[in-house]
Design a protein around this nucleic acid. Sequence first.
DNA 1: ATCCCGTCCA
DNA 2: TGGACGGGAT
Length: 305
Amino acid sequence: MTESGPLPEDVSAVQSSLIEWYETDHRSFPWRETADPYRILVSEVMSQQTQLSRVEEAYHDFLDEWPDVAALAGAAQSDVVGFWSSHSLGYNNRATYLHEAAQQVRDAYDGSFPESPGELQELMGVGPYTANAVASFAFNNGDAVVDTNVKRVLHRAFAEIHNVDDPDYETVANALMPAGESRIWNNAIMELGGVACQKQPRCDEEGCPWREWCHAYQTGDFTAPDVPTQPSFEGSRRQFRGRIIRLLGEHDEMDLDTLGHRIRVDYTPDGEHGRKWLQGLLSDLSDDGLVQVEEGDDQITARLQ
DNA sequence: ATCCCGTCCA
DNA sequence: TGGACGGGAT
């Protein structure tokens, strides 16, 4: 008898049923129509933080502006950050990471993307997930991707994982992936997590191909891994950082008090949320490489870096 | 009011 | 290893 760990005996049936399910019907996205690593990277970075419906428009506009990695590498960072902010893509640091990654490809890889997950992960802003996604979708050369969708699917489907404190999702995900099929496999398992195995499961509605093997489907226990709850955004420091970046994207240079009054109605230069508070924010944004602060004779001005 | 989510950095 | 990071959608 073969040892299959937490996986069912007939792994190949599990594999082929998912691939068949995906091939029969799946959502269509522009980044699923290309194998260009640059386009894949752009779509992945955007998708990590923004609803897919909003990503489609931003993706199109971004490629319109910077059609290839050389164009992005040659862009001014302030333009990329301004684009990011004006398209409400969130996490402005990622715009600087993406810009820097493009310059790494230009300078360290002679303008053409490396094809292995290990090398891709050396690019700024590219971690294990994105490295495997780009390697898979561009080059069919990745390992199994492990994002929260995949974790939720594995957690529910296979009972043994369910009971372990620190499940090694990466090992299980790789054991499940058919060798040499990372492109279609990673597309398929993420589609399963995004369409059928959502937080509110839609097993029958979406015809989940794994129902006959799925621990959750058989027991009715659709527990999913905990996602940490985040502090509220309203009134947060992040909200004001975002407002500063958006304003500087629109005005290219602003002095301290004008900026202050524009980002919060209760700004008073010497009040609790005044110059001191604003300069703290700007100093952090400057450390993040997003903003440039200039101290003139009689005033302080800020601009996108 | 709550949800979404991978990467960087201390 | 855990905190910071955006803002629209629901």
